[in-house]
Simulated scan of single mutants.
Amino acid sequence: MAWRSCAVLLRLTGEDVLRSSARGGRWPHTFQQKCGFRKIAKKPESKKVEEEPGHTESSEAALHRRPPTPHVEQRAPPGAPRDFGRLLRPLVFTVGFTGCAFGSAAIWQYESLKSRVQSYFDEIRADWLEKLRPQKRGDFRKELNQWWNGLSEGQKTVTGIIAANAVVFCCWRVPSLQRSMIKYFTSNPASKTLCSPMLLSTFSHFSFFHLAANMYVLWSFSSSAVSMLGREQFVAVYLSAGVVSTFFSYACKTVTGRFGPSLGASGAIMTVLAAVCTKMPEARLAIIFLPMFTFTAANALKAIVAMDTAGVVLGWRFFDHAAHLGGALFGIWYIMFGHELIWKNREPFVKLWHDLRTGGGGGGPGGGGDTGGAV
């Protein structure tokens, strides 16, 4: 089915570019963390295919003939009990994964600082050797290196994330992978597989427009976000945001009884958007096609949160507003409290890692102060 969305780009006037999407007063797939699927009712004699969106035939051949069609909804039977106990495992996974993400980011920063001096000398030697080599015009590798070196630190950081999303999108096009993609790369609180899809679905897009819009926004925000947080902290926040926003979606679906598969990176992107707007509330935003109308980042964030809150309360079903709202609230919380609570208290963990690595020694390079980018 066609994806009803129209990109409207926002930018920080005189600064980095912030982009979002809207149509008819609603935010389309650019900021849609989850795109619901609906199961069409099957005949009684048909064999059930678990979590298969838009599928009216039960045979495997039919599955291969037509990939799943996203965007519908699956309701629980009237009066069916809500199994809130099923949220326990996702909650534990969310807390545990977030802790592991920030712990890994702290170790990554430590190792980066430790190797910085060696890298400096390696670059000097590489530059010296490059001068000795004969120069070739039109050398593709050289042009690629020049392009890479021209990117900002933020753009380099999100290149891997964009590549991962592109690979998953291509996997959706392979008929033999459809069942695995639905099982592991769409999140659904009614599914037997609850935890791993909370992360994997963050890298999953069925529609090319959904993928392109989300990655375009991520690319645009990357310079501002990474300059604020540093690349290690940014990656930890981004991955944690995907899982946190999915848990919000799980909780909302369980409360309302509206189950169904979801996918997309928009919850994590909403966290990045909310973090930038919270940190720079007075920054001026403008719709790129209407540059004469500007508004503050704080007002834009308030409008987004208000809209998604209304979507959750009123039961709007075109988007997964709970995932949007969860991502935005996580971004606001992290800038206001989480950075101090989590990242600035990483010194004991880094010191423990340093002692394990060196067999017990002094403080490591990441042990003192807040390095590698700070809010």
Score class of each variant (00 low, 15 high):
C195I: 04
G230S: 09
G138P: 02
G154E: 09
V226H: 03
S112C: 13
V217Y: 02
W148K: 04
S180P: 00
T186G: 03
R125P: 00
G160A: 10
T186S: 12
Q155Y: 01
F247D: 07
A241F: 07
Y238H: 09
V235D: 05
E232D: 15
R231Q: 14
M228N: 06
V168A: 00
M215L: 12
G160K: 03
N149C: 06
S152T: 15
I107C: 09
A190Y: 08
R231T: 11
A241G: 08
F206W: 12
I182Y: 00
F206G: 02
S227I: 11
V167A: 06
Q135G: 05
L200T: 02
L132N: 02
S223A: 14
T246D: 09
G230V: 13
A241P: 08
A163M: 12
L151V: 03
L194P: 04
Q146M: 11
G150Q: 05
S180G: 07
C195Q: 06
F221D: 10
F169W: 08
F234M: 06
T159C: 10
R133D: 10
S187V: 11
Q233D: 06
G103T: 12
S220A: 15
F248M: 10
F248A: 15
A236V: 13
F221K: 03
G154Q: 09
A225Y: 11
I182E: 00
S112E: 15
R231E: 14
P134Q: 12
P175E: 07
V117L: 14
V117K: 15
L132D: 04
Q178K: 02
Y216W: 12
R141V: 14
A225L: 15
R141W: 14
